[in-house]
C-alpha cells in the first residue's frame, strides 16, 4: 500500500475543493466542491490509518467513512431541494446580490 501517495492525493483534493467552494457561484458547483472536500477527508482518514495485519484496511475508519458518505448524500439532497425552492422563489441558482457584480 502506498499510503503517502494517497495522503498526498487527499491533500491535493482538499484545497482544490475549498477553492471551488470560494470561486464558483453556481450553487450546484459549490455542492460538487463540498462533496469533493468530503471525499478528501475520508481518503485522509483511511490512507492515514495504519494497515491491519491481514492487509485489509482498518475497520474503524472504514465504518466512519461509510457513515460520512451517507451523511454527505443526505446534506447534498437537502441542499439541492433548498436550491429548487430558491429557483421557484427567485428564479436564480446563485446567491450573488447583484451589486457586487461588476
Amino acid at each position: 500500500m502506498n499510503a503517502p501517495l494517497f495522503l498526498a492525493g487527499a491533500a491535493a483534493l482538499l484545497p482544490l475543493a475549498i477553492y471551488g467552494l470560494a470561486a464558483r457561484r453556481h450553487l450546484v458547483s459549490k455542492l460538487i466542491a463540498l462533496n469533493i472536500a468530503a471525499s478528501a477527508v475520508f481518503l485522509a482518514l483511511l490512507a492515514g490509518a495504519p494497515p491491519a495485519p491481514e492487509g485489509a484496511a482498518d475497520p474503524v475508519p472504514q465504518a466512519l467513512a461509510l457513515t460520512g458518505i451517507v451523511i454527505s448524500v443526505s446534506i447534498t439532497a437537502f441542499a439541492l431541494s433548498l436550491l429548487r425552492r430558491l429557483v421557484d422563489e427567485r428564479g436564480r441558482v446563485d446567491l450573488a446580490d447583484g451589486d457586487d457584480m461588476e
Binding site: A11, D58, V60
Partner: peptide, 22 residues
C-alpha cells in the same frame, strides 16, 4: 504546501501502531 505537509504527516504516521483492527 498542503501536499508537502501531508507527506510529512504521512512520515509521522508511519510509526503509529497497528491500529484498531486487532
Amino acid at each position: 504546501g498542503a501536499s508537502a505537509a501531508a507527506a510529512a504527516v504521512a512520515m509521522v504516521l508511519e510509526r503509529a501502531p497497528e491500529g484498531l483492527a486487532p
